[in-house]
Simulated scan of single mutants.
Amino acid sequence: MTETIDLADVARRALPLVDLTNLNDDCTAEDITALCKRAVTAHGTVAAVCIYPQFVAQAVRELKGTGVRVATVVNFPAGGTETLDVVAETKKAVEDGADDIDLVMPYRAFMDGRKGFAEEQIIQVKAAIPAPAILKVILETGEIRDPLLIHMASQIAIGAGADFIKTSTGKVEVNATLEAAEIMLTAIEEARRDHQKNVGFKPAGGIRTVEEAGAYLALADRILGHNWVSAQTFRFGASGLLNALIGALDGTNASAGEGY
């Protein structure tokens, strides 16, 4: 009984933090309509939907008045697009109404020692996003792997203007892990302590159960304090997770199912 109450508490806390995601290669307009409907639940709304750029205008129309944000991805998923093209992609998404831009940092260039190139791309993309739209920078930690490099990538993204740093695209073998999350949350705490800069965190890819969500929330609480987590500072990038959260809140313990 105690476990059920705990799971419901975690689910209640996590549901408004979800960036409900469909980044499937075969995604259709009908899928976006279904996603937007899922974003508004009997237990409240998710934070955002996260979709490909070509669907932004549709999602903006379908979510009007709900308070659900529209997030999209650029330089996705490989992080290898030239900066001018990424900036153009970003500007088009913002014109279509995107609230959040999730940019894949040029992580392979970064790993090859081209840290300045990665930093400059983030700076230029940030400059193309007028407030109140925000920039989340995807580090692709499962590919970077090295803890010191993950910490450095976090620092570079934060210094270049990221409003959030995000673990993963969900498109590689290793996506969100608690180990990478701890490194990134520590970098966020360092930025807050040393520069009075508040940056958010988004674990993404492979988080499908209430227990897994609870582990990330507990980690954020430990590093940044119990009052830090909100939709302005913390998001889950997921699709299957929502079913598990609703199941916990309904008392049905529905499985997460498949998804990003």
Rank of each mutant, 00 (worst) to 15 (best):
D146P: 05
S168E: 11
A34T: 11
C50F: 15
Q124E: 13
I32S: 05
F76P: 00
P130G: 00
D6K: 14
K202S: 08
V229R: 07
C36A: 00
L63R: 10
N22E: 13
W228S: 04
A118V: 08
V172M: 10
Q155A: 11
R222I: 08
A180N: 06
A231I: 04
A133Q: 08
E211P: 02
H226A: 10
A244I: 09
P53E: 13
A78N: 06
A109M: 08
L149H: 07
S168V: 14
V70P: 10
A238S: 14
A57S: 12
D194P: 09
C27R: 12
I150M: 11
I223M: 04
D250W: 03
D26A: 14
D99Q: 07
V49W: 04
L185I: 15
D25M: 10
G251A: 03
V87D: 13
G159S: 15
D112L: 09
A34K: 08
T83I: 13
I134E: 05
R61D: 12
T81E: 02
Y107I: 00
P203D: 08
T186Y: 04
P77G: 01
E190Y: 08
G65A: 15
F234S: 05
G214N: 10
A78L: 14
L23K: 05
I156S: 06
T90M: 00
G142I: 02
G142M: 04
A162V: 05
E95V: 13
D102V: 01
K126E: 03
L20I: 03
R145Q: 15
I129F: 01
D9C: 13
I158S: 04
D9A: 11
T28A: 08
V86C: 07
N22L: 01
A176K: 14
Q58T: 01
D31I: 09
I188C: 01
A109E: 12
I150H: 12
G113S: 02
A153M: 08
K171I: 00
K202H: 09
V199Y: 00
E95L: 15
R61V: 09
G97H: 03
L23M: 04
R61A: 13
P147I: 06
G240L: 09
L7E: 10
T233K: 05
E179G: 13
K197G: 06
R38S: 06
I51D: 06
D221G: 02
A11T: 13
G251H: 14
T83C: 13
C36M: 03
L35E: 06
D194V: 13
A98E: 04
R69P: 15
A93C: 15
M184E: 02
Q58G: 02
A128F: 05
I183K: 12
S255A: 11
K91D: 02
E30K: 14
K136F: 06
A34R: 10
N243R: 08
Q58K: 11
E82T: 03
V68W: 02
S230Q: 02
E189W: 14
Q124M: 01
I122Q: 04
E182T: 12
A127D: 14
R145L: 03
L35T: 01
E120D: 15
G65F: 07
I123N: 13
A256S: 15
A220L: 08
L7N: 12
S168W: 15
K64D: 15
L17V: 04
K64Q: 15
E120T: 00
V229C: 08
E211F: 05
P147R: 13
F236G: 07
E3M: 06
N198G: 08
T21R: 02
